[in-house]
């Protein structure tokens, strides 16, 4: 971050950190009312996927309020796991002076000079983003007593690289685990982001969860790895910078769920911001045979560009039974796979 770390910038960062202090956020959230999620007691878990409309905030309290309302509504509908989209703290960029929703990202970057990349801005804001994000979701998870996959945020990895990292919070407010995005979009490469190399699966009372991010669902290998490491639900926080098209969206999580016999939850960020249009329908998916209409869809948002919360029940007993007969490991030709992979990837 040496490129934009002038004295003024250091002072601004200190100011933003003060403005975002945990005590202030907690004090605001304390003024809210909370219902409690039912603790998961069987192999049936009710999950919610938030479809969130991205807007810039000038103040971390606004951000906390937005997130509070999503979780409150999801828990009110019985959710025991609430899932949020990719880039779920991009709202906080609005705290920077001179940034407005109508600003154009490419123009803003041009104004900053060619040596500054988008990743540098998120890297700079990283201490603020992390502080606000972790405080808000830790507090919401513990107050609602609910598991929250809080989506992903763009933050520094501590080694001057900007990564896209997802977070899972337990009902005690503690971070159960994090996951870095494993495959970048060309746009993200242009922005200067870096990707991770490890995929983790987290056993929790709401299921064995993996949560790779957005573009990771384009690659079947992500889901194969998740399932072979024990995942029963793969969560995909998404923020698709493209006009909506049913078929292009169908290329992501839906076929991955079918080929790797697993539940899938996609939470989409939508809206228009900084000259970028984000679209996509949040959805909860299962193998065809485990859905009423044999279409692989347990629940799906009605719109691709509005705020929505969808909920569905995941029945792990049904999934396990289905896998015993139809799971890909029953029939995958491992000798064939090992003959060609991984060495063909060059």
């Amino acid at each position: 971050m040496g490129k934009i770390q002038s004295f003024q910038e250091q002072m601004l960062l200190r100011y933003l950190l003060f403005k975002s202090r945990p005590g202030r956020i907690k004090s605001f959230l304390d003024s809210k009312s909370y219902c409690h999620a039912e603790p998961p007691q069987s192999n049936q878990v009710r999950v919610a996927a938030v479809q969130g409309k991205l807007s810039l905030v000038k103040n971390p309290i606004e951000y906390a309020d937005i997130m509070y309302h999503y979780v409150e509504e999801a828990v009110r509908q019985g959710a025991q796991l609430v899932v949020f989209p990719e880039d779920n703290a991009a709202h906080l960029v609005g705290m920077l002076p001179g940034i407005s929703e109508n600003a154009d990202m490419s123009q803003t970057m041009a104004d900053l000079g060619s040596e500054v990349k988008v990743a540098d801005i998120f890297n700079y804001l990283s201490p603020v983003t992390r502080q606000v994000f972790e405080t808000v979701f830790s507090y919401l998870a513990s107050n609602f007593k609910v598991h929250i996959m809080a989506g992903s945020i763009l933050v520094s990895n501590g080694y001057n690289k900007t990564i896209n990292q997802g977070y899972l919070f337990g009902p005690d407010g503690v971070i159960i685990g994090t996951q870095q995005k494993l495959h970048l979009l060309p746009l993200e490469l242009e922005w200067g982001l870096s990707c991770g190399e490890e995929l983790s699966v987290f056993p929790t009372p709401v299921g064995k969860l993996a949560f790779p991010i957005c573009m990771d669902a384009t690659y079947f290998e992500t889901f194969r790895s998740s399932v072979l490491k024990g995942a029963e639900t793969v969560i995909i926080p998404a923020a698709n910078p493209d006009e909506y098209n049913f078929w292009k969206e169908l290329r992501g999580i839906w076929p991955r769920v079918q080929e790797s016999t697993v539940f899938g939850i996609r939470s989409s960020m939508v809206g228009q911001l900084l000259g970028i249009t984000l679209t996509g329908r949040s959805g909860i998916y299962a193998p065809l045979e485990l859905t009423q209409k044999k279409d692989g869809i347990l629940a799906e948002a009605k719109t691709y560009n509005e705020d929505e919360i969808i909920v569905a029940e995941l029945d792990y007993n049904l999934l396990r039974e289905y896998r015993r007969n139809e799971g890909f490991m029953n029939y995958l030709n491992i000798d064939l796979c090992k003959r060609y992979l991984p060495h063909l990837y060059k």
């Binding site: 573009m215 194969r224 995958l332």
Partner: peptide, 21 residues
């Protein structure tokens, strides 16, 4: 325009096909 194959995560796939399968 959209080079999916330039973004393979070879480290992840090595683990998948060498250890997990």
């Amino acid at each position: 325009n959209y080079p999916i194959h330039n973004f393979y995560n070879k480290h992840l796939y090595k683990e998948l096909f060498s250890e997990l399968l």
